[in-house]
Design a protein around this nucleic acid. Structure first.
Length: 259
DNA sequence: ATGACAATCAGAGATTGA
């Protein structure tokens, strides 16, 4: 089972790029972030014709997440539990009904800049809710994963110029402390379980030639429960597509799990 | 301190992102 996560920065602007990548990558399941459209405007037919079941949680203009899968998706829920007043579309969860069922949580964690400020407070509160849901998933003792755009640079080795990020919401100590809470309850960072190489980035800013200078950061992650980590075979980042025509500023990260 | 770059909504320029 190959499961990929990709912050596409607008599904309508990125449709050609995504289709080209799907052809090349051939994932059975895809977790998308920043679809930037309502459920009604998502081009679901395009993916259904490729054999994917499509589940979306969108909103107008901003945010929005979706799951595509060639296996049936069951028990689909939308919205991160813990705050009924939160209207931002940043979480969709489902169980992939494969021979070994996998629970997948597709998330788009708030950016949080500028920090400090109300957006940073929202980010930290969202991470506290994520921590509570993560602990529940661990208690299930089942193969499950959290994946998506975490907007967290975990360590200095995850940025080309870490000194420039120390006051940023993606790398502040409050943010990284909450990231580590997810590891402490038992989640495994899939990329780092396999690959300790530097420059394993998933994001390069559109500005100042960041891609050409490899001035990147690692902020898109797969976190696995112990039962899911037992199934882990590979984890990779499709960095080359950042150089394609009309790319997203993020690139896909994927895992392959034993069936 | 600012802007550089891109997408969205709207139909210019503000807002958001990271």
């Amino acid at each position: 089972m190959k499961i990929a996560s990709f912050n596409i920065n607008g599904i309508r602007a990125r449709l050609a790029c995504v289709l080209r990548w799907l052809e090349e990558c051939q994932p059975e399941t895809v977790l998308l972030q920043e679809i930037k459209c309502t459920d009604g405007n998502f081009p679901r037919g395009v993916f259904e014709e490729l054999g994917y079941q499509v589940e979306t949680h969108g909103q107008k203009s901003f945010n929005g997440v979706a799951i595509l899968s060639k296996f049936p998706l069951e028990f689909v829920t939308r919205g991160l539990p813990g705050d009924a007043s939160d209207v931002q579309a940043r979480w969709i969860e489902a169980v992939i009904s494969a021979p070994t069922p996998i629970r997948v949580c597709c998330l788009y964690l708030p950016n949080g800049n500028p920090a400090p400020g109300p957006k940073f407070e929202y980010k930290l509160a969202w991470m506290e809710r994520l921590h509570r849901r993560a602990a529940e998933l661990i208690a299930l003792e089942e193969p499950a994963l959290l994946a998506g755009d975490f907007n967290v640079i975990p360590q200095s080795e995850d940025a080309e110029t870490p000194e420039e990020w120390v006051t940023d919401a993606l790398f502040r100590h409050e943010t990284r402390q909450r990231w580590r809470q997810l590891l402490h309850v038992g989640f495994t960072d899939a990329l780092r379980a396999i690959n300790r190489q530097p420059s394993t980035y998933t994001f390069w800013d559109f500005q100042r030639g960041a891609w050409e200078r490899n001035d990147g950061i690692r902020i898109d992650h797969f976190l696995l429960t112990p039962q899911c980590a037992d199934l882990l075979m590979e984890c990779g980042i499709d960095q080359h597509i950042r150089g394609w025509e009309k790319p997203s500023d993020h690139v896909p990260i994927w895992v392959t799990l034993r069936d």
